[in-house]
């Protein structure tokens, strides 16, 4: 009974954080008049749960050697990550208004040399997961406790290198690696089904030797439960989470619309989107 209460409080607070993330990422994309809202919104619950609950990190010491790592393999949705970093205090909140501007630490795609809290520079799809594998191998060989979380786009899994990385994770029994696939079924040109069908992702991941979970990526109860379940991973296997999501989630006119993959809202759209997120029933 008491535990449930604690849990409800956690879910409530994550719901608030998710809302803050969505507002922040839309604000920065609107200010920049450029960026990728669709895949940022679909990943908001996952990123909120990671940055406000699951990750062992020290915002005041971004390079803390024992920190959990987060690799945003689908680097184009950095607005959601920058929002989490801003809200966790890695840099002043106002920095979000410099997204994609000359000299900004908030480059169009994440730059580890400029932005505190970025564990690896990404932007070219298919590559981030390999770097996460390298970090996980280093952690194991050094006897460290940290874990490595990697967020991959579903379209991104069309890159062969993703599967090269997964087989390496499996070979080296990287039970400290958590691969999360944002399965929103939309990529740049169209739905994944049209561009290049993904097949049965769960079966593919299982076949590659991952301990695979399928969840609703917008259900904070399911997200926190799966994180609870894998926290003390004694399967000896790397973990995969296929998060079923909706691209553009939280903004009705963006939901499931391919065009919002990489398009900024105008002033009127932005106002409507912010009002919708603000008014979202709790």
């Amino acid at each position: 009974m008491r535990q449930e209460l604690v849990h409800d409080t956690l879910i409530d607070s994550l719901r608030t954080s998710t809302k803050e993330l969505r507002k922040t990422l839309l604000t920065m994309i609107h200010a920049a008049q450029s960026g990728h809202p669709g895949g940022s919104l679909s990943a908001s619950e996952i990123v909120a749960t990671l940055y406000f609950h699951e990750l062992r990190i020290k915002p005041e010491d971004p390079r803390w050697p024992d920190r959990d790592r987060f690799v945003l393999s689908k680097g184009h949705v950095c607005p959601v990550l920058y929002s989490a970093l801003a809200l966790r205090g890695y840099f002043p909140y106002e920095t979000i208004y410099t997204l994609r501007q000359e000299g900004s630490m908030l480059q169009g795609h994440p730059d580890m040399k400029r932005c505190p809290g970025i564990d690896i520079s990404t932007g070219s799809l298919g590559q981030g997961l390999s770097t996460a594998v390298g970090m996980a191998i280093a952690g194991k060989r050094d006897g460290k406790e940290y874990r490595v979380f990697c967020l991959v786009g579903d379209g991104e899994t069309q890159e062969g290198q993703i599967w090269e990385a997964l087989q390496t994770a499996s070979k080296y029994k990287l039970d400290n690696l958590v691969v999360i696939i944002d399965n929103n079924n939309i990529q740049n040109d169209d739905t994944c089904s049209v561009v290049m069908p993904l097949g049965d992702l769960e079966a593919k991941l299982n076949a590659f030797g991952l301990w695979t979970h399928v969840i609703d990526g917008h259900d904070l109860v399911q997200i926190t439960s799966v994180f609870d379940r894998i926290r003390n991973n004694d399967s000896g296997l790397p973990v995969a989470i296929v998060a079923k999501t909706v691209k553009g989630k939280g903004v009705s006119f963006m939901e499931d619309i391919t065009a919002w993959h990489g398009q900024a809202p105008n002033d009127e759209e932005f106002a409507r989107a912010m009002a919708e997120i603000e008014g979202e029933s709790r």
């Binding site: 690896i120 997961l129 280093a138 390496t168």
Partner: peptide, 15 residues
């Protein structure tokens, strides 16, 4: 898997 090799190396270098 050379492309992966390069990425794994980059991840190791960050550590």
């Amino acid at each position: 898997a050379e492309q992966n090799a390069c990425g794994v190396a980059a991840g190791l270098a960050t550590c």
